[in-house]
Write a protein that binds this DNA or RNA. Sequence first.
DNA 1: TTGAAAGCGCTAACAT
DNA 2: ATGTTAGCGCTTTCAA
Lengths: 367, 367
Amino acid sequence: MEPTEAGHREHRATTIYDVAKAAGVAPSTVSRAFSRPGRVNSETAERIRQVAEELGYRTNPLARALSTARSHMLALVVSDVANPFYSEVIRGAQAAAADAGFTVLLTDAQESERLERAAIERAIPSVDGIVLAGSRLSDSAIRMVSKQKPVVVLNRAIVDVPSVVPDNARGMRQAAEHLASLGHGSITYVAGPEASWADGMRWRSLLEAAPDHSLRVRRIGPFSPDVPGGVQAAEVLTRNPTSAVIAYNDQLAIGVIRGLAARGIRVPGDVSVIGFDNIFASELISPGLTTVAAPLYTEGSTATKHLLTLIESGRRQQSLSAVLPTLLVVRGSTAQRKRKRTSPASGTNSIPGSAAAAARSTSAGSR
Amino acid sequence: MEPTEAGHREHRATTIYDVAKAAGVAPSTVSRAFSRPGRVNSETAERIRQVAEELGYRTNPLARALSTARSHMLALVVSDVANPFYSEVIRGAQAAAADAGFTVLLTDAQESERLERAAIERAIPSVDGIVLAGSRLSDSAIRMVSKQKPVVVLNRAIVDVPSVVPDNARGMRQAAEHLASLGHGSITYVAGPEASWADGMRWRSLLEAAPDHSLRVRRIGPFSPDVPGGVQAAEVLTRNPTSAVIAYNDQLAIGVIRGLAARGIRVPGDVSVIGFDNIFASELISPGLTTVAAPLYTEGSTATKHLLTLIESGRRQQSLSAVLPTLLVVRGSTAQRKRKRTSPASGTNSIPGSAAAAARSTSAGSR
DNA sequence: TTGAAAGCGCTAACAT
DNA sequence: ATGTTAGCGCTTTCAA
């Protein structure tokens, strides 16, 4: 308004009509010059683009969305943006979306089901599809959402909903194998959230892999999947010593190491520890954390690509799910089992509830 | 289409017209029943809301945006989503936006000016404002952007553009003071990216604070502001020993510690190290990193709130900038200076270029 | 308060 | 290949 202020208001967006008038053609012709398939290449189209360029014309995505019912936006809902696990996932999703000319609407559920629900509810009308990463929602709630817009879930498997997960089974097998090769005869699994599909999967996978290496396994938990949770777990471990632990995820593992250290128990001297995910910090701590590396970035990009496919195809391909390979990254937190303590695991094996826990974890999975 | 598939397509969104018809009123009346200020409270309005509820009607944000020229979306452009520094910032921004009923469009510049430019270009038409966090763009480029849409920059100061920055001066003073109190007489500043406004600011602040504590300071760098950069810096430090270093940010500091350790130099035994930001990982490494804690979350939320204010006010308040307080978090990476080595810093002081570097850093700042 | 009508900027038939 | 005509779903004058 005020002449002194170079405010935004003065920048009246140029429309298709401005271009049409300037180029002496009909508006629809301008629209065509910018339309999708292979772009029109007539002489006029070229001239129109020229004129548009000069006028600084940008097609208005919102208007386009309204008339095409395609917003070219994707929602990425994560359970907690501050969780380092998601950094790479977000990045992968963002990159894949950008490649396809899509924009990412990020929403943080802040570990709250209520907030997640609300976020989804609000995002739905403006997006063409949704990636749910680490959703707190129930399977049926998610299935409900996927009835309204294409959905791909990350790190979780739900019947009838496309998903992208790391190869938990292989990962746990690799971890177990590694520990066995170091002479460990028994392993303690430090569990994550009770409601986590991934946790159940990992535990079950460990149970299955154990016999092949004559490993005895037990399980403690559930714990909150963060550093404090791990510290808590360390407490429990102190009361029930083991020589080797596999944690649900890296943060838990890091917490365990810290908690153990605080009690004078050395890693890997006294206890070997393995995490899962290979987050940024797992390389920074000392000892470096041996961990099952999940392809975080790829998980994000794959989920997004699948979502895009779903959108394009109008939801044909029913089961567009993917299992991504994992890789064991050996760092300093695992070592040969000390021969000194002869039977560190005796008497602590066969914790009741293992079988039940293994069974419980199947509710969600079709894989 | 196929009856077997519970596809998304069948869920034809209910519109204002559907509600209008069902309620026996005109569409505009329905619109009013949902309009902003204080909401209409007539009997009819109440009934309309009732009907809408039953029909599962949700107002279409895109259509609303088209007609009101307000999308209720904000763009948050970060230089690198994978950088842990941004986790909290994103979270803060996201929360503040959600509070105001706004949605966040996250875009990752992937440390590329070209990509950042493109991302902004694409986001501009769909958003009501933009938060630029750690932008790689030139001051003038940013000023250009801010002519089109309200902009708030984070961690940087630009004339005429609202900004949110941590109190770098105070932070560096606290750090210097802490080191001085531990008996250190000379400090090496490990610099971040040359183009970083924050880096210049921090170095200059350190220079200013030094005399008050009879501290001698020198500067090495620039280094890439990540862990590898810090490792590189450690190399340089090995050739020019000091007893104390302050790094541009935590990741650099962590790299320094690791690099030093690899060379058998102990932290804090031989060298004390201080970082900046207080990212998640700084607490996890050992020794814990003493660091100047920047209010990451608050930076994100404040920037967003200011942006919202700007949007609402139609860009009145010219200088809506904020300087957020910092806090020194003392952990294990700093300690009393060893008395053994008598003059560790002698001969390495007064590196040429310090003054020039201090001068160079002023180009951007108005504060 | 409510209804009628016009229009936001764009795309999508349908003509020509 | 280009022009014409309708909308997409919502808000917003302007009347009633």
